[in-house]
Computed example of a mutant assay.
Amino acid sequence: MTEARTFKYRTNLARKMSAPGGRSVADAVARADTGLEQHRAAAMAALVDRVAALEAACAAQGPGSERGVYDQAAALLDMAGFFDTGPLYAAAFSLCELSDRMIETGAWTWPSVAVHVRALRLILADDCRETEQAALILEGLSTILRRF
């Protein structure tokens, strides 16, 4: 019977990882942040479009459009998460939670959704800054969310 032998292969990736030089973690993070910032204007425009779509859904209040509100809010939340949007992210998260709870319970109320959408518009108009007004808006949204 022949004896089993094991071979240890060193992959190309392993060789490159152990080679001296390259970028530091801090440099890589800085470059990634710079690359991400180049897309900020386009992302903010897309966020404005999402809020406009939510406003249209609130105006239409069509039957069966509840799921669309959740989907739009979730897409807004996804985009807001890539950038420092502070209160906008929190407001979008609140709208996702609210719409999810209302769908689960079957107790959909458009005024609660409309308040969230108006809050999103106000926060966007204020450039997503952490202001006293934004804190008050988020406090009001959390009050609505606690009701459900």
Rank of each mutant, 00 (worst) to 15 (best):
L47S: 03
L47A: 00
V48M: 14
V48T: 09
V48S: 06
V48A: 02
V48F: 05
V48K: 07
D49E: 11
R50G: 03
V51W: 14
V51G: 05
V51H: 09
A52Q: 11
A52E: 09
A52N: 10
A52D: 07
A53N: 10
A53Q: 09
A53L: 06
A53S: 06
L54F: 06
L54E: 03
E55V: 05
E55Q: 15
E55S: 15
A57G: 00
A57P: 00
A57F: 01
A57Q: 05
A59C: 10
A59H: 07
A59R: 14
A59V: 02
A59Y: 13
A60S: 14
A60N: 12
A60I: 10
A60Q: 15
A60K: 13
Q61Y: 03
Q61C: 04
Q61M: 12
G62P: 15
G62L: 14
G62R: 10
P63N: 10
P63D: 00
P63K: 00
G64E: 05
G64D: 12
G64Q: 14
G64M: 04
G64I: 11
G64F: 06
S65Q: 05
S65D: 11
S65Y: 08
E66T: 01
E66C: 02
E66P: 07
E66Y: 10
E66N: 09
R67C: 09
R67T: 03
R67L: 08
R67Y: 09
G68V: 13
G68K: 12
G68C: 01
G68N: 10
V69H: 05
V69P: 07
V69L: 04
V69K: 00
Y70K: 01
Y70P: 01
D71K: 06
D71T: 00
D71E: 10
D71L: 06
Q72D: 14
Q72K: 04
Q72M: 04
Q72T: 10
A73V: 02
A73W: 05
A73M: 08
A74M: 09
A74L: 12
A75C: 05
L76K: 08
L76W: 02
L77I: 06
L77F: 15
L77M: 12
D78L: 14
D78T: 15
M79C: 05
A80Q: 10
A80E: 15
A80R: 03
G81D: 15
G81R: 12
G81W: 09
F82E: 09
F82P: 01
F82I: 11
F82V: 14
F82Y: 13
F82S: 04
F83P: 00
F83M: 02
F83E: 05
F83I: 05
D84Y: 07
D84R: 13
D84L: 08
T85N: 11
G86C: 14
G86N: 15
G86Y: 11
G86M: 08
G86I: 03
G86H: 13
P87V: 07
P87Y: 08
P87R: 04
L88P: 01
L88R: 05
L88W: 01
L88H: 06
Y89M: 01
